[in-house]
């Protein structure tokens, strides 16, 4: 597969790891805040690798811009100085770290046991052969993003080698699923909630009913994956309740924050 993509991945992965370790190790909260911002950048980069461009931007905007600024503001406001290290070695700190590490090991074990490395290896060879074939047929190959995440079987009729698909392939695959939804082959919530009881009709109030046509409209321009349009459509269609609730949440937090932080007059 490609050389650059993996490189960037490892680069930013280690970047994220190191900065997050730095965040919890540094003594001075100011430095922590700054390393955290760097960490958010690494995350943003990873989002891009995962072709979630909109979120990468939002990440930087929201986290980097808003939240970290807030943190820095607070740190500056309370002019926290370098805090002396904890006086004595507390036993429960050790337990905590061990617990954390065990959490990680467990998660890793869970993930690795779910992923069968041979399977991945075969996928890899199969993809490698497809790539060679493609190269021999000299088809027009868009920017190859070799992030060959072994996904489900290739979509039914798509010629594209899903293993080595690039942005274009992702687009087509996504459009493919949208069409499938539209044609009613699979519903959006298909095999998402395994124990979801499909036959129990779940009726949204009419006002919230998604507008049948508009829902699956494939906007003009190809290449929707990762952009804001599908997100915004979903926000107002399927996720309209959470959307409104988030609004309320934000309102509440603003009012709360303001009350708490205001200096008592009396």
């Amino acid at each position: 597969m490609g050389f650059w993509e993996p490189l960037f991945f490892w680069l930013f992965a280690f970047g994220a790891l190191i900065t997050s370790c730095a965040v919890i190790v540094m003594r001075n909260p100011l430095y922590c805040a700054l390393t955290l911002i760097a960490d958010f950048f690494c995350f943003a980069a990873l989002y891009v690798l995962l072709s979630a461009h909109f979120l990468a931007v939002v990440q930087i905007l929201v986290y980097g811009g808003a939240i970290m600024v807030l943190f820095l503001f607070i740190i500056m406001l309370l002019n926290m100085r370098r805090v002396r290290p904890a006086s004595r070695f507390q036993v429960h700190y050790a337990i905590a770290t061990i617990a954390g590490i065990m959490m990680f090991l467990f998660a890793a074990w869970a993930i690795l046991s779910a992923v069968d490395m041979e399977e991945v290896a075969e996928e890899r060879e199969r993809v490698a052969e497809q790539i060679e074939e493609v190269e021999q047929e000299e088809e027009e190959v868009a920017l190859r993003t070799a992030s060959a995440i072994p996904g489900p079987e290739a979509p039914v009729d798509a010629p594209v080698l899903y293993a080595d698909v690039n942005e274009l392939a992702v687009e087509q695959a996504y459009a493919q699923t949208l069409r499938a939804w539209r044609d009613g082959h699979a519903t959006p919530s298909d095999h998402k909630y395994p124990d979801f009881d499909p036959d129990r009709t779940y009726e949204l109030p009419p006002s919230l009913q998604p507008d049948p046509e508009q829902a699956h409209v494939v906007p003009g321009r190809e290449g929707l994956y990762g952009t804001f349009k599908p997100v915004s459509i979903m926000l107002v269609n399927r996720f309209v309740i959470p959307f409104e609730l988030t609004a309320v949440l934000l309102l509440a937090s603003i009012v709360g924050a303001m009350i708490l932080a205001k200096r008592r007059v009396a």
Binding site: P6, L17, S20, I24, A96, G100, V115, I149
Partner: peptide, 25 residues
Amino acid sequence: WEPTLAHYLLLSAAVFSIGLIGVMV
């Protein structure tokens, strides 16, 4: 070398654990 889904998940788990340790410590 090439990143697969597992890589990303491992990374997220690692960062999560580091965050957790940070909260506790």
